[in-house]
Design a protein around this nucleic acid. Structure first.
Length: 199
DNA sequence: ACAGAGATTAACT
DNA sequence: GTTAATCTCTGTA
């Protein structure tokens, strides 16, 4: 069962980021299906959030997708190399988004390994925002895709995590965002080996 | 028109 | 621990 438009268009981006843990992210690209359980997310709550590309309602060709409806993909290129996959949330003109930072692979492991140019699967396959995008075959051509379609989508699962299994913390790599840099907008499953391991 | 920085990763030392 | 990879946007001219 795909997550509905109503799920993405709710107001509280932190609640959605928390609820995305345990959901399953699918891609069907190049006739290959790959999927993984989401184990780490970060919320970006523009226009107030200085860490967001859409801070202060800044609109560029890159950020335009933030201002559309919830339930669309936002893929952008980081450091000129890595494609980072986000889910746009909330309604038109409210630029909220959630970065998917890590997944636990469940389907298409061999396809992921080929895309990652690894001879065998291991924990580094999808543990990081750039790595999981590569494993799933996501690149900037997939910016602005409707998650109700059958290219990239999220499904509900029977997985439910208790609050004590979820670790909240500050986001990664955004020290420039001043007072926003310390906010606990990052959610991850405690002790899950597939979560990212930043220094 | 050009220089500098960034929601990162992997391959070095 | 350090560094290279090199796209997009911003500030300065």
């Amino acid at each position: 069962m795909k997550l509905t438009r109503e799920f993405y268009e709710r107001d509280d981006v932190l609640t959605i980021a928390r609820e995305l843990l345990g959901k399953c992210l699918f891609t069907k690209l190049d006739d290959k299906v790959t999927a993984g359980i989401i184990v780490e997310t970060e919320a970006y709550a523009a226009p107030l959030d200085k860490a967001s590309h859409a801070y202060n309602n800044k609109r560029t060709s890159r950020t335009e997708i933030f201002f559309g409806r919830g339930g669309f993909s936002y893929v952008y290129l980081c450091y000129g190399i890595h494609h980072l996959f986000n889910v746009v949330t909330n309604k038109t003109d409210i630029p909220h988004a959630i970065l998917i930072r890590a997944i636990e692979p469940v389907e298409g492991l061999s396809t992921m390994a080929i895309r990652r140019q690894k001879s065998q699967t291991n924990y580094s396959l999808t543990s990081g925002p750039g790595a999981l995008s590569m494993a799933l075959g996501i690149n900037k051509r997939h910016n602005g895709i409707d998650l109700q379609e059958n290219k990239i989508w999220l499904e509900d699962t029977s997985i439910r995590y208790a609050n004590c299994q979820i670790q909240k913390g500050p986001r990664v790599g955004i020290a420039y965002a001043e007072e926003w840099a310390d906010k606990p907008y990052r959610f991850k499953i405690k002790d899950n080996p597939w979560t990212s391991k930043p220094k």
